[in-house]
Every structure is written in structure tokens, then in C-alpha cells.
Nucleic acid binder design. Structure first.
Length: 446
RNA sequence: GUGGCCAUAGCUCAGUUGGUUAGAGCAUCGGUUUGUGGUACCGAGGGUCGUGGGUUCGAGCCCCAUUGGCCACCCCA
């Protein structure tokens, strides 16, 4: 049979791993420096944990894990009309890291010191149709703080986002909005029940333009009056202050809306100019956001967002721990990797596959044994060392191996060198070769 | 879930209006005499042209179906 892997999944070669690990390391370092602690949760969660958290669309995209055991027999014996969903599957692969985190917080509430700042970098799975920048298995790197309503957290997350992308050498646009502003808008135009339809339509402004948005609003059954009232927002062009003024004016009658504007202003007051762009058309689909929402897009590459997040006031409520506010971000490292690849950032940053520093070559059992001893002392000195594992008279093979793996140094150990107590060290890039005692060799390679 | 494009060697692709043994580059392996790689030269292996059916004297090329991949919508990281 010919080998294959499931749709939307990927293998990562050593070369790709070097690049991905560079991104993971960069993000993890920033998370640590802001006081976030790492946790992990299982790949599978109970479906009761996952279902209903991501909207109807999200539920469809959940990977369900078929119950083990003779599932089909159980079902056959029950008869078609008696079958429940739980008979087929009661577990699912995690869809994101936020909901499992909420579950974790509730289960471990007695061990946790609040506010709890945690990060998590693990794969998630979605039964989506793959395309550019979209995979069925991909990694998210989340940082969330739960149990603190302070907007300082939002501010720090914004700072972290900028630090990460600076270190990765990527230019990005960080867009921010506030769910309360969107709620206010819906209230003001008298369509508070249709907030999701309205925001989803607004969100597409970039893609389909003003007419497209208006058409979609009509299709969704939003009243003409409401659509008229939304026009100043949709058509708005101006700077940050003008945008705030417009919103204050429009949302005067909405408590929630006014609160949203206040939050944006408070966050802005703690940040420097240019830290974010206030974008009222930014909606973000996940329906658990309640306050600030943000999304990061890479400059110059069309691939959707590379990072997103926001505040959710009651995510743990459904698991029995109400009134705990949280806020977090999620970095999509697969897309970040795609963007960096497309912009050739890895070359600029000089990311290369890590390889051994030195290969020890030999001619027979005896010299190979000597190499094993030599390797021990080199490794003890912290030098990554390989001994060619097979015995061959053809030293060419061993050199080719070093060359292909880009090992920068080769040591040649023959009977003669062994006797003399000196081995030849060859620099593979210059071609130079000199004899050294084992002690000198360590000095040369450290 | 809806729509578009594609499918030839391990990889990237050629393959002329359907016509005889389907090609190239790269990669792989071997060689250019005995303990020195990456650049040169010579040579070898490797493809039932995704799969199944049809049209035809004849199909890699045309038609239908099927599977897989890519892309867009939807949604999102």
C-alpha cells in the first residue's frame, strides 16, 4: 500500500522543526517574561465540555472520537430509533485551548492562585476543509489571565503581541475592538437580538465592501432603518480620535456601548500611539467574547489572522464557577510559519537545522571503539558528537554523510593516529586539516 | 456544506492536431584504482501516466464516474 496521512495533517522535517521551534521558543520566552506559567491538557475532552461552546458552525467542525468497544453491536441491539449520540461518541479532540483551559480552571480552582496567568502551546483539531493557511491539525499558543477584570491585562497582552512579532521580524497590524461597542450598536439601531448577524456582516467589510455588507444585512433581514443608522460606521474614514467621537455620539443612549468606549480609551491611555488600530468592523466569530477583542494580521501576506483573542466574562460559568473574568490571546504558529516562509524571514534570521558539530570517522572495529571513547569525552565537554555507526573501509561515505548533514568538523581516526595519540581534525568549510591530541581537540571544538 | 482548478519517476515539471520503445532537471545508487566531502565526467535503477469505465484501428492526450490534492466561499489560527 502507498503511505498517506489524513487530510489537512502534515509531517514536519528536521528543517521545518528548526523553524517551528524558533517560533515556539520566541513566544514561550515572552510568555515567561510576563509571568505566564505553562500547562497542558489532554488531546481529548468529553464532548459535553466541547459542545455548544463554539456556535453551530464550531460544533460541526468538532472531531468526534468513536467510542471504543463493539459500538456497532451495541447500536444494532438497540435499534435505530433508540440510538443516542453518546452511544457513538462521548469524546472529542480539542477545538481550541480556551475552553479546555476554562474546564481546567474550574476543576483545579482550589489549587490555583488568582489571578491565574497560564500559557499553553498544543495542537488543536478542526474538521474543516483545508486550504491555504488552514489545517485540520494545527498548533495554538495561548496566553490567558483569568480572575482579573483589570484592563492592565489587555495592555500587557498587546505589549506581548508586539514583542513576539518584533522578535520574529514580522510587520503586523493589531486591530482592536470591543464587543460592548458592537452590542451598543445593535441596541442603538434596535436590533439587539441580531448582534451576531450584524457583526458577521460588518466583519466582511474588507472583503466585500460597503455594498456587499449592506446586501448581506438586507439578506439577514435587518430593517432598512437599522441599516441606515449603521452607515456612518461602515463608511467612516478618519483617525482614532474622530472615531471615538463618532462612537460616543452614536452610542450615547447605550450604557453598554458607552462602557465599551471607556474600555478602549483606558487601554489606549496605557499604550503608546500605534499600538493598535481601533476597527469597529472587527467582530471575531467566537461568541464567548464580552469585552476587548483583537486580531493580528501579517503585513504583505494574505493568510487570515495570525493571532487573535479577547476578554470573556463568564467562560467558566457553564462549568459551575460564575463571575470569573478572563482575557487571552492565541498565536497561530502554523500561519506565522507560513508567513515567515513566504517573506523569507528564516533566511534573514539565519535559522538552520541544528546538526552535530563533529563526526568521528574510522576504518574498523578497533578504531571505531577508540572513537566511542573519544566521543564520550567530547560529549562530556558539551560538544554534540556523532560516531559513524557502520564499519566501512570507504571513508568517502563517512565524509559524504558529514557533508549532507552539514556537520562542520570531521575527525579521522586510523590505526596510525591511534598509536600516535593524535587525530586529524578537518574543517569541512575550509578544507583545512591538522592533528590534535584528544585534549587539544576539545579545546578546538568547544 | 457550496463552487473552481489540477492529477505523468522520490521531487519539480515537459509531453506538440489522439499514432509506434513516455522524456528532462534535481534526488538516489554505482564508477573515475587502494585512508578525505561539497564543484567535474561516465553509468544505472525507478513510471501499469491517481483509479474504474467508455469512444477509437490506436488514449498520457477526448468523454463519464470515482478518489486524492490545491484554491475560493463559509468560518477561522
Amino acid at each position: 500500500m502507498k503511505p498517506s496521512i489524513p487530510k489537512g495533517t502534515r509531517d514536519f522535517s528536521p528543517d521545518e522543526m528548526a523553524k517551528r521551534n524558533f517560533i515556539f521558543d520566541t513566544i514561550r520566552e515572552v510568555f515567561h517574561r510576563y509571568g505566564y506559567q505553562g500547562i497542558e491538557t489532554p488531546a481529548m475532552e468529553n464532548l459535553t465540555t466541547l459542545e455548544g461552546k463554539y456556535g453551530d458552525e464550531g460544533d460541526k467542525l468538532l472531531f468526534r472520537v468513536l467510542n471504543s468497544g463493539p459500538v456497532l453491536l451495541t447500536i444494532q441491539s438497540k435499534g435505530a430509533d433508540q440510538i443516542k449520540r453518546a452511544d457513538l461518541a462521548e469524546k472529542g479532540l480539542r477545538y481550541d485551548l480556551t475552553v479546555p483551559f476554562a474546564r481546567y480552571v474550574v476543576m483545579h480552582q482550589n489549587e490555583i492562585t488568582f489571578p491565574f496567568k497560564r500559557y499553553q502551546m498544543q495542537p488543536v483539531w478542526r474538521a474543516d476543509r483545508p486550504q491555504k493557511g488552514r489545517y485540520r491539525e494545527f498548533y495554538q499558543c495561548d496566553a490567558d489571565v483569568i480572575g482579573s477584570p483589570s484592563l492592565v491585562n489587555e495592555v500587557e497582552l498587546v505589549l506581548m503581541i508586539h514583542e513576539v512579532f518584533n522578535k520574529l521580524g514580522l510587520k503586523v497590524v493589531l486591530k482592536m475592538n470591543n464587543r460592548k461597542i458592537l452590542t451598543g450598536l445593535a441596541e442603538v439601531v434596535g436590533e439587539q437580538d441580531r448582534i451576531i448577524d450584524i457583526t458577521v456582516a460588518l466583519d466582511k467589510l474588507d472583503k466585500i465592501g460597503i455594498e456587499g455588507v449592506n446586501n448581506e444585512l438586507v439578506e439577514k433581514g435587518i430593517t432598512a432603518d437599522a441599516i441606515d443608522m449603521l452607515q456612518p460606521i461602515i463608511k467612516f474614514e478618519g483617525n482614532y480620535n474622530e472615531k471615538i467621537d463618532l462612537l460616543k455620539n452614536l452610542l450615547m443612549s447605550s450604557n453598554t456601548g458607552r462602557k465599551g468606549i471607556e474600555e478602549v480609551e483606558e487601554i489606549a491611555s496605557m499604550l503608546t500611539a500605534g499600538s493598535f488600530e481601533l476597527d469597529i468592523t472587527l467582530a471575531r466569530g467566537l461568541n464567548y467574547y464580552t469585552g476587548a477583542i483583537f486580531e493580528v494580521k501579517a503585513d504583505g501576506v494574505q493568510i487570515g489572522s495570525v493571532c487573535g483573542g479577547g476578554r470573556y466574562d463568564d467562560l467558566t460559568g457553564i462549568f459551575g464557577l460564575p463571575n470569573v473574568s478572563g482575557v487571552g490571546v492565541s498565536f497561530g504558529i502554523d500561519r506565522i510559519c507560513d508567513v515567515m516562509e513566504e517573506l523569507k524571514r528564516f533566511e534573514t534570521l539565519g535559522i538552520r537545522t541544528s546538526s552535530s558539530k563533529v563526526l568521528l570517522t574510522h576504518f574498523d572495529k578497533n578504531t571505531q571503539k577508540y572513537c566511542m571513547g573519544l566521543a564520550s569525552s567530547l560529549r562530556a565537554a558539551g560538544i554534540s558528537t556523532e560516531v559513524y555507526p557502520d564499519i566501512t573501509k570507504k571513508i568517502v561515505k563517512q565524509f559524504e554523510y558529514a557533508n549532507k548533514k552539514q556537520i562542520p568538523f570531521v575527525v579521522v581516526v586510523g590505526e596510525e593516529e591511534m598509536q600516535r595519540g593524535q587525530v586529524n581534525l578537518k574543517n569541512m568549510s575550509t578544507g583545512e586539516q591538522h592533528p590534535f591530541t584528544p585534549e587539544q581537540l576539545i579545546e578546538q571544538l568547544v
